[in-house]
Amino acid sequence: MIHLRSIAASWLLLGLLACSKAPAPAPVPPTPVPPLPVATTFTNPLLSSGPDPWVYQKDGFYYYMATTGNNVTLRKTAKMADVGNAPATVVWTPPSNGSNSRDIWAPELHFLDGKWYIYFTAGPGNCCGGQRLWVLENSAADPTTGTWLEKGRIFNPNQDFWAIDATILEQNGQRYLLWSGHDNAATEEQRLYISAMSNPWTLTGPRVELSRPEFSWERQGVLPVNEGPQILKHGDKTFLVYSASHCTTDDYALGLLSTTATADPMMASSWTKTPTPVFVKNPAASAYGPGHNAFFKSKDGQQDWLLYHANSRAGQGCSNERNPRMQPFTYRADGTPDFGTPATVGVALPRPSGE
């Protein structure tokens, strides 16, 4: 009997052991996932279309704009090399008819006196005859949000002629508007003008002509043209970079006016024009008619970059085939900018430093 009890106890012990929870296997460490490689290069063009590109930097972001023809669109990105992936926000749509309902060109965003302003060109139709300059205002911290209010047309009542491509110059504590326009109602030659501003939407005093097409490289295409003025400051110098010749020609190029950082910009004699273009076509790089540019600093502030449009093939003229491109530039020993030659489409370039 004792023997049977011992056997029964042994079986009971074995049963209890069999029913007990087996120890969990040691966890298998997850296979590490390598981080995605950080892009160090980009290629031009930045977008498939984008005439008259513009960029403004504030608080670590780049705000990009270009001509759409039918509205004002804004892109916001932390990295200029990624601007093609940035969402496009339509911030203003024109009325169905009226004096600013058609041909929306060359918008520029500026932060002035604590608010955002957009300067753009528009007209009533027929493409060119009625083009004038207009201003939008937004008090939001982020210009892709908030409400854009029309401040109306910006013009000089005594010299109110065809006008496009407005930009801003601040010098000696004064603010100025620069643009491309006609000398009178009978001419179509485009010249560069400047006028002082009493606030971001009002001109005060007369306009002054700073440049007109003089050289053969400024007079290519169907009309002689100086347009797309842009300001570049470096050291003790102020430069006005502009586009020359008509956009119908592959020889559309960049020209340069120079003055000092303390000169009176309203005095035409303060400016010196460089007699040769400073940035021209490069057929080997698929860059025809390069121009209507803007400037920006790299994320870390160490590099200067040129943003411009060009056509990828000859003979594409003023169409939406013009696409935005960018490349770094340097300065010569005399302080003037050296833009080099247009970079080749599709060839990898280092991203702006800091990206």
Results as ranks from 00 to 15, higher is better:
P229L: 06
P32W: 07
R313G: 13
T248R: 02
F61M: 13
G291Q: 05
D304K: 00
L306S: 05
Y252T: 13
D264S: 01
L4I: 14
K76E: 11
D160A: 02
S198G: 10
S211P: 02
I231E: 03
D52F: 04
P229C: 08
C318K: 06
D59G: 07
P124V: 00
K273Q: 15
P35M: 11
Q302H: 11
S99E: 12
A310T: 13
R212M: 09
T31D: 10
G123S: 04
P29L: 14
P29K: 12
W116S: 01
T260N: 05
T93L: 09
T77V: 14
K58T: 07
H246S: 13
N100E: 14
E150T: 15
A66L: 01
S312I: 04
E137V: 14
R132M: 11
W271I: 01
P30W: 08
T41A: 12
V347P: 07
G125Q: 11
C128E: 07
I231F: 00
L349R: 12
A314H: 10
A314C: 04
W148D: 03
V38A: 12
K58M: 11
R219H: 06
Q303N: 12
Q131R: 04
A268H: 03
A310D: 10
F296W: 08
D334Q: 09
G221I: 00
I7P: 02
P200H: 09
I168T: 12
A253I: 02
N126S: 15
T238R: 03
Y119T: 09
E188N: 11
A122T: 11
G130E: 04
A294R: 02
D82I: 08
I7Y: 01
L112A: 00
G346Q: 11
I231D: 00
I118F: 09
P87F: 00
D183F: 05
T67Q: 06
S180W: 05
P53V: 08
R313P: 01
W134F: 13
R175C: 02
W134L: 06
